[in-house]
Design a binder for these strands. Structure first.
Lengths: 265, 265
DNA sequence: CGCCCCGTTGAGGAGAGTCAATGGCTGTGG
DNA sequence: CCACAGCCATTGACTCTCCTCAACGGGGCG
C-alpha cells in the first residue's frame, strides 16, 4: 500500500483520513508469478489493478508472432481504467517478475470515485500520466534512433521507479531482457544488444545482472532528448522540501501541489 | 452538436433529456482556421474541446525539427481530458482544416460529470477509446512495415470517420499531406509517396485531390492486419438494426449496448 | 505569369534486420 | 558432482527497408 501512495504524492498529498473511502473498498491482494497473465486480451475487464510490487508489461501480439510491448507497469501503477466502461481488454498484461497486486471490482470502485472527489482527482492524474507516457512512447518509436530510444526509455523508467519508491540512486533494477526492450522500442534484440554495448563502451551505462547503472544522466538526457516534463511531476527534491515544511499534511486533506506552482510567472 | 452525439451513440444512446446537464453548461463555439493552434504545448490547459467539424492533429516537435504526430482528431472527438487535472499541455494541437469547436471550461465540466453519471460514462468511454487508439498507434509504428502502417491507418480513419458521421462509403475525405502521414507513421514523405503509389498500382486505393477511395477494404484489412475490435465499437450495421428496432430510445435514457452484447456465449 | 507547395521518381547510402555461431549462466537430473 | 539442456547476450557477415539528396512537374493563387 505504501508504494502506491508514494506515487500519488507526486501530485496530491492526501491525509490518511482522506484515503479511508479507498481503504474501505472490498479489495483483495493477489500474487502473480513471473510469466503469469494478469489481464488477457479479449476477456471482459471488470476489475481495477494496482501494482504494489514487481514489474509487468502490456503487449500485443500480431498474427505472425511479432510482439509490441505497449508499456511497462511499475509499482504504484494503476490499470485498467478501461474496465470502468465494461469493455473487453484489448491487450494482455503479463508479470515480468513475481507481482503483488491489489484487485478491486470496478463497480464499487466507480462508486467510491463518485463519492470522494479528492481520490478521484488522484486517480485521474494517474490516468493522465499514463496517457502522457503512451504519447511519449509514440514519439520515441516514431522519430528517434535506436540509441535515443534506449536512453530515453531508461531515463523514463528510472524516473518512474524513483517516483514510486522514493529512492534516488543511479541504479535501476530492471528485470528485463534484450528481447523485451526490443519489443518495446520497435527494434530487434540483436540491435538492442549492439547499441547497448556501444553505450557501455562510451561510459553511459554499466550493467550487472539485471541491474543498470546510469553513469551520466546528464549526458544521457542530452543524447536522447529526454525531458521529464511529460510525466507531470515536480522535481522530487522540491517535493521533499515541501513535505518537510508541511509536516503531516494539511487539514483539508488535500494539497494541490501543481496548482500552487502556477503562481510563479 | 449532431456529430458529437453520433459518435457517442456507438457506445451508449442517451435520450435528448439525458443530455440537458451537458447542454446547460456554459460552453462556447469557436472556429479555428486551418493551421491555427487549438492547444499549445507548455500552456496551462483548463478547457475541454469537442471537435464538431474539421480535422485536427496532435503533435510533438523534437529540438532538431523532427515532428511526430501523435494522433488525428476527427469530428466528434473530445480532448484534452488532461485539463481536468489542471496540468500543462504536453503536446500541441493544430487545425488541419477549418475547425468548429465547442469549448467548455474544465471546472463546470467536472462538476457536470459528477452529477450526471450517464454522461460521465459516455465521456469515459470516449477517453478509453482514445487510449486504445494511442496503443494501436504504438503497435503500428513499432512493429509494422510501411505498407501495413499506411493501410492500417487509412482503415482506422475510415472507420472513425464513418462512426462520427454515420456515413458508410468507401470514400475518405482526408485533408492530409504526405508529410502529415509520414510524421504520423514514423516515415519520410518520400517513402510514403512511394508506398502509396505502389498501393495505387496494385488496386488497393484510388486518389483524387484530397480524397482517398478504399477499393478493396477486405484485402487491405488482411494486408495490414487490421481489426476493428480495438475501437470498442459494434459493427455499425448491427447498431443501425438496433436503433431501428428500439425507436426513439428507452425510458431510462440509457442504452448500454455493449453490456447487452455480453449475453451471447 | 511566376511562385510556392506538394507529390513523384531516381540514385545512392545508412541504420536496422536476418541468419548464424559462440559462450556464459542457471537449473536439473543422472 | 558433473553433464547437458535451455535461455540469453554477444558478435560477425550479409541483406533490405527505409532515408537522404536531388531534380522535375503539376496545380493553386496572387
Amino acid at each position: 500500500m505504501k508504494v502506491f501512495r508514494n506515487k500519488f504524492s507526486q501530485y496530491v498529498r492526501l491525509s490518511e483520513d482522506a484515503w479511508t473511502p479507498f481503504d474501505d473498498l472490498d479489495q483483495r491482494s493477489e500474487t502473480f508469478e513471473a510469466g503469469e497473465d494478469l489481464i488477457v486480451a479479449g476477456q471482459d475487464a471488470n476489475e481495477v489493478f494496482v501494482l504494489q510490487a514487481g514489474w509487468a508489461l502490456r503487449y500485443r501480439l500480431l498474427e505472425d508472432g511479432r510482439r509490441q510491448i505497449v508499456n511497462f507497469m511499475l509499482p504504484g501503477d494503476v490499470f485498467d481504467l478501461q474496465s470502468l466502461s465494461d469493455l473487453k481488454a484489448d491487450h494482455t498484461v503479463t508479470a515480468i517478475t513475481d507481482c503483488d497486486v491489489t484487485v478491486i471490482p470496478s463497480r464499487p470502485f466507480v462508486k467510491m470515485l463518485q463519492e470522494s472527489s479528492h481520490i478521484a482527482a488522484a486517480f485521474w492524474w494517474s490516468a493522465v500520466q499514463e496517457d502522457s507516457i503512451l504519447r511519449e512512447q509514440i514519439v520515441r518509436i516514431g522519430r528517434r534512433s535506436a540509441r535515443e530510444r534506449i536512453g530515453h526509455m531508461l531515463l523514463e523508467l528510472h524516473r518512474r521507479y524513483a517516483g514510486a519508491t522514493g529512492e534516488e540512486t543511479d541504479e535501476l533494477v530492471m528485470p528485463v531482457t534484450r528481447a523485451d526492450i526490443a519489443d518495446a522500442l520497435g527494434l530487434t534484440p540483436v540491435h538492442v544488444s549492439r547499441t547497448m554495448s556501444a553505450m557501455r563502451r562510451s561510459g553511459l551505462i554499466e550493467e550487472e545482472r539485471g541491474s543498470i547503472r546510469l553513469l551520466d544522466r546528464e549526458r544521457l538526457s542530452r543524447l536522447s532528448h529526454f525531458d521529464t516534463d511529460y510525466l507531470h511531476l515536480k522535481k522530487l527534491d522540491l517535493l521533499k522540501k515541501e513535505m518537510a515544511a508541511n509536516g503531516k499534511g494539511d487539514a483539508a486533506g488535500l494539497t494541490q501541489i501543481n496548482a500552487r506552482e502556477k503562481e510563479a510567472p
